[in-house]
């Protein structure tokens, strides 16, 4: 027989986030932290499904804490509060995954024991990278394909401007203005989040 989880449990979070600004912050938070934790887990040797599961647990743990947040704080605080809770949730989740040596454990656990629980500088670095990726996704569709490609090939792939200009059949000057426009917008988006 099927066991149904009550739909109410998963609705409650959205109910708690009725404030549009907070909801926006939560979605932004989840969009950045989930792939961030996923990548950190993959780098520690976890398989796709296990890394997803771990990222999921971090998000659920943070979501579970949302009721503790007091909404009478000033604007903008929800986001920094989320970041603080997330830091602890990530460290806890990775630590819990790490078994005592006496318990032995699965391959996953053994792989995790080889890497320490993430330190603050790793978290900070990963977060910054993920913010860039998130921002790039946000602004991608504001640009024509050719503008985006010019930025990507020169800035991200490190190709010479002249080479890209030839490849795309554009002038060198237009490649410079294209990558500058994208970079400016990307930077704005990144700073908007920080």
């Amino acid at each position: 027989m099927l066991v149904h989880e009550p739909p109410e449990t998963r609705e409650s979070l959205l109910i708690q986030l009725r404030d549009a600004g907070n909801r926006e912050s939560w979605f932004e938070f989840a969009a950045i932290y989930r792939p961030m934790v996923y990548r950190m887990a993959r780098r520690r040797g976890l398989q796709d499904a296990d890394a997803q599961d771990l990222a999921q647990r971090v998000l659920l743990s943070v979501a579970g804490s949302i009721s503790e947040w007091k909404s009478d704080s000033e604007r903008g605080r929800f986001r920094s509060w989320l970041a603080r809770v997330a830091r602890n949730a990530i460290i806890d989740t990775f630590r819990r995954e790490k078994p005592d040596a006496a318990q032995g454990g699965s391959t996953i656990m053994q792989q995790l024991t080889q890497e320490p629980v993430p330190a603050d500088d790793e978290l900070e670095h990963e977060h910054r990278r993920e913010v860039f990726r998130w921002a790039a996704k946000q602004v991608r569709w504001e640009f024509e394909d050719s503008t985006w490609i010019a930025f990507w090939l020169t800035t991200v792939k490190g190709k010479a401007t002249s080479e890209v200009a030839e490849e795309l059949g554009k002038s060198v000057g237009s490649i410079y203005t294209a990558k500058s426009r994208v970079m400016k917008r990307l930077q704005e988006k990144v700073q908007e989040h920080s």
């Binding site: 989930r34 996923y38 999921q56 800035t155």
Partner: peptide
């Protein structure tokens, strides 16, 4: 920017595909 985006695909779709596949928990 270069370092953060280096492993992404150009249209930024790859990671979302990886992350939505087989997602276990609906919440």
């Amino acid at each position: 920017a270069a370092e953060s985006l280096h492993d992404e695909s150009i249209d930024m779709e790859s990671i979302s595909t990886v992350l939505t596949r087989g997602e276990a928990d609906e919440l």
